[in-house]
Structure formats: C-alpha cells, structure tokens
Design a protein around this nucleic acid. Structure first.
Lengths: 206, 206
DNA sequence: TAGATTGTTAATCGATTAACAATC
DNA sequence: TAGATTGTTAATCGATTAACAATC
C-alpha cells in the first residue's frame, strides 16, 4: 500500500488517531483494535485500518495495534518526530489563545515568534514571547527556520500576511481570518474559520 | 432540484458564498457569475451552480446571480434571517476571542450568555455579558431560547458541558475542545479543533 | 442577433464500507 | 484449536466536474 498519494481526508484523521492514542497511553492501555478506535472516534473500523495501511502494517492480526508503537509511527508520518517551529501573526484575543494553548507542545509544534502590525502591541509579552513588528518578520522566521505560519489578523490584512510568510519561506499556513487566501501551489494552506463553521450549524436547526 | 437531502459538504460551502457575497454587496457589485465566484473562492463554477440549484433557481441565464438577492436567499437557507441566540461555555482566552469577535453579528448569530466553572471567572464582564456559573446554565439557556452552544473548555470538561447543553435543549454544538464528544442523533455537532488542523499541516512539510 | 451564463444531466473521480482470507 | 482482528480487495456510495441545451 505504500507509495500511493494520500488523500487529505486521510491525513486529517491521523491527528485524531494520535490524540486518542496519546490518551490511551497515558491511561496505560497497551493495545487497541480498530473496533475500539472506531467506536470512540465515531469512525468506521475498516476506514481506520485502511488509513493506517497506507503507511505500513502496524497491527497484529487477532490482536490489534500496539498503542505506543502506533503513536510513534503516526508521529513519524506527520513529521512530528522533531520540533516544528511555528510563527503567528496577530496578537489579538485569538492569537493569544493559540499561543497560550500548549497542548500541541508535546506533539512538537512550537510557536517561536509572534508578530503584530499595531504599534501598541509591539513588545508585549505573550507566553514568554515578545510581540515583534511586521518588518522583522522575514528575517526572524528565516533565522528561526519557521516552517508553518498561523494567521490571526483581520480579513483585510490576511492576504498580505500570507504573502510575507511565503516570502519568508514558510511551507504551510493555517489561516483563521474569514477570507480565502491565495498562495503558490507549493505552499499548503488550511482555513480554520469558525464563522463559517457556526453558520453551517444554523442550517441544521429545526 | 428541491426536496433532496443536502450533503454536509454543500452546507459548509454556503457560508463561504455568503461571506464573499456580503463583501461584493459592500463594494456595490450587483451581479456575479459562478465563474467569478469560483475564481475568488477556489471552487469549480459548476459546483457552485449545482450547490445553489439544490435550493432554487437563483440565477439568470446569460447574466449570473443578483448579489443582494442571492445573499437574501442564502440567509434564508441557513436560517440566518432571524437572530439565533448562542451560548458559550469556557471564558478562557479562546472563549473571550469568540465573544469579542462580532463579525458574525451581522449574520444574525448572537452570543447571549457565557458560562464558566471557575469561581474566579464568575461575574467577569466579557463584551457586555457577565460570566455566569454552570448551575445557571440550564435555566438561562431555556429562558433565552438558546439554540446553539459553543464549547471552549478543556477536553476533560467538554463531554459534561455538552450533556448540559443537550439537557437545556440546544440543537447544535460547536466544540473547540480537543476531544470527540458524543451527543444524541438529533443534536448536530461540529468539531473545530485547531490542534488537529495544525498537525495535519505538518504532513505536507518537505 | 451573438455572446454569456445558467440549470441539469451524464461522466468521472474519489472516498467509504463490506467482506473475507490470512494469521495471531 | 477457536476466537479475534488485521490488511486488502471488491462493491458501494457520494461528490465533483464536464458538457450542453435553454435562454437572457
């Protein structure tokens, strides 16, 4: 099964598996079946087995998956086996929330620089980081080898921030601004927009 | 095309259309083609036409779509033509960010109550709302006719908060906690988890 | 009229699920 | 051995895209 191109749907499920496996490991559970996983994560067990099989044979027939071994493998697949330096632009409420939220630290994502365009915000401390002005962005992210950028600025500024990230060599962007941003093909962009998320929920009201 | 069951993928694109149409309206653009929309939103024009056609014939052949008319129609489809009262639990950084972010106000989503389980947070003011204790949740959301609940508490508390929302009659939940929550079938739940979002991005690094 | 663009059908593409031989 | 569970193929299901007649 190796060497196929993997669909985004599969890739997006891997962190969900990882999160739950970490939980199991903490609770000293050593083995888990696709059945168990499927029940807990609301997914079809066949789908879970298939997802994992794209990357190797991680399970044992009749037994299931070794929790810690699978954690290690998924970390490798997601490239979370070494620290990934992340930069964030937009030191507002949301940016602050993301910086302070350190749960992803144990999975090797680390916010190493924060920027803002408002003079009043420069120099402020957020979770041991000083907010830097935008004109330092390019140099700083190159120096720190930042590979992923997070955008938490208002919609009007988002495209410009993305452009600066790209110019600085960032390989992937997570955009929280409520606007579709254009980036070159080689840069990966995900949109995490809770406004659209919330509005789509309204559809399902009676 | 009416009376079909609409897939979630379609429903999730409607708010994206709405957002861009609002933008066009503000710029006094009166007409737009599926071509234009597709280019701006990185979507296939045929897909946009098909999405809209599920709900009616909103366009004019040879012309395109009337921007303001389409806005009105999508608002109706998403049930955003009247105010939808929303409650939020978890007055941390993220909860605060969501409360202060009022962009969705113009599309009729309104956070009308905020709760937290920490004694120290009770009574605090967030965007004109006083943080209330959890034991007031059920009564308050019933009184205010809250229909959607937002969860921004730590993972360990999330299921319990969801249960209380359900008991209070909420019809849909947007969960930001990094855990899969179980709710009855008649309640709609969306997970908005930036940790998994960020980790899936790592996969695409070179 | 000529050009543009919709709404919709048919074709394609891709993702999910069922089923089962292999095997622990 | 008997029971359980994987990895994988085949079947199903669903979503996207292409194509085009209708028509503004």
């Amino acid at each position: 099964m190796k060497n196929m191109k993997i669909s985004d749907a599969v890739v997006r499920r891997l962190p969900i598996y990882l999160r739950f496996l970490n939980e199991l490991s903490k609770r000293n559970v050593h083995t888990v079946s696709s059945q168990d996983l499927g029940y807990k994560l609301d997914l079809n067990p066949a789908q879970i087995r298939k997802d994992l099989a794209y990357f190797g044979e991680f399970g044992k027939k009749g037994i299931g998956y070794d929790v810690d071994y699978l954690i290690e493998k998924i970390r490798q697949i997601l490239k979370l086996d070494k620290v990934i330096p992340v930069a964030l632009v937009g030191a507002g409420n949301l940016g602050r929330a993301l910086c302070n939220y350190n749960a992803y630290l144990k999975d090797n994502m680390k916010i190493v620089a924060v920027f803002d365009s408002m003079a009043a915000k420069i120099g402020e401390s957020i979770n041991y980081l000083k907010v830097q002005p935008m004109n330092e962005l390019k140099q700083t992210i190159q120096q720190l080898n930042v590979r992923i950028g997070i955008i938490t600025v208002p919609a009007v500024e988002a495209q410009s921030v993305a452009d600066q990230f790209v110019a600085g060599g960032v390989e992937a962007i997570l955009n929280f601004a409520p606007i579709i941003i254009k980036v070159p093909n080689e840069v990966r962009i995900h949109h995490a927009d809770f406004t659209t998320e919330l509005q789509s929920l309204a559809y399902y009201l009676d």
